[in-house]
Design a protein around this nucleic acid. Structure first.
Lengths: 156, 156
DNA sequence: GTTCTCTTACTCGGATAGAAACTGTCCGAGTTGTCTGGG
DNA sequence: CCCAGACAACTCGGACAGTTTCTATCCGAGTAAGAGAAC
């Protein structure tokens, strides 16, 4: 899983806290977490395409949450930042080679291995879909307060 | 997730079915699924180091299950074949950059983002740990029968 | 004072390069069953 | 018939490329706010 997922989640949380100061330009978010600005931009663009962040072009533009944080699940953020969502991909190995010779009708159905792997990934998704950016925001009020404090004094 | 995980699971299931013919050499398993023999060998060696498969050196040697299939969980197989088990890795972005200036005590605790991501991965692991190679073997008796039939006639 | 234009500060998308992980191949060394030849 | 030695069939581990994915940077184009000039 790419590092951009961590960045994206933290950015969403921060944008939730900084709702009053939106939009926040990429440069500031990069300085905020000490991240490479150009690459962070690419990941934020992906969140924009997914309808999670909204971009304001032009001077004084930047990024803001496209929806209230209670309506953005962690699953959506992860899905937007990860290309191949499924960690496991079934290549239908069971249908190839000498083992499949004279294959019976069960080869037409879904692969049992893939089915159980999929089931596990569904459990993972369910867990991620059950929590929102608002949950993350609520976890550390101290960080929220410091964010407001620091952002006002942020130069550049 | 690497392709070797799929190979490993299918090989374990097949070795379960071919218990009577064990040990099965890498060459046969590779031909069985039409896989690159040398690379498959590497993955099987990993399963051997993890104590999932047992290797018999020498002529007429090969691989067999190190334990009865009811006692090999899918989780173990995946863990043995995947280096970095955790898909998500927390790099503690929250402690870096301008956003962390004057950091409060909550920065000492665990990261909320990482905690929820971890929770999701635990759900995934739980699901994988709940199913064994025996479960996979039981899913398709037709394949089991064909495996026995084909293996007898397998030349080379 | 209003409007027009110019500059500035942003985002968007594509192109590109480097780093890391995954995939695949090759080789030398060790182990064991089988075959062969001598006793 | 029995035993020693050669041979063949395996695994083990390391070294080494090729390929894909992730990370990172750069550039040109488009958009909006604000400043300044013209009317």
């Amino acid at each position: 899983m790419g590092e951009g997922v961590e960045w994206g989640l933290h950015c969403c949380v921060t944008l939730g806290w900084l709702h009053a100061e939106a939009p926040v330009p990429t440069r500031r978010l990069a300085a905020w977490f000490d991240l490479p600005q150009e690459y962070l931009k690419k990941r934020l663009q992906a969140l924009g395409r997914a309808g999670i962040l909204a971009s304001s072009p032009g001077a004084r533009g930047g990024w803001s949450l496209a929806r209230p944080p209670e309506r953005i699940t962690m699953m959506e953020v992860v899905a937007a930042l990860e290309d191949g969502l499924d960690a496991f991909t079934c290549t239908e190995v069971r249908r190839r080679g000498a083992g499949a010779r004279g294959g019976g009708p069960e080869l037409g159905g879904t692969c049992g291995v893939a089915a159980l792997m999929r089931r596990a990934e569904m459990a993972w998704r369910r867990e991620l879909a059950a929590h929102t950016i608002a949950d993350l925001m609520a976890q550390s009020p101290e960080s929220a307060a410091r964010t407001h404090r620091n952002y006002r004094h942020l130069t550049g």
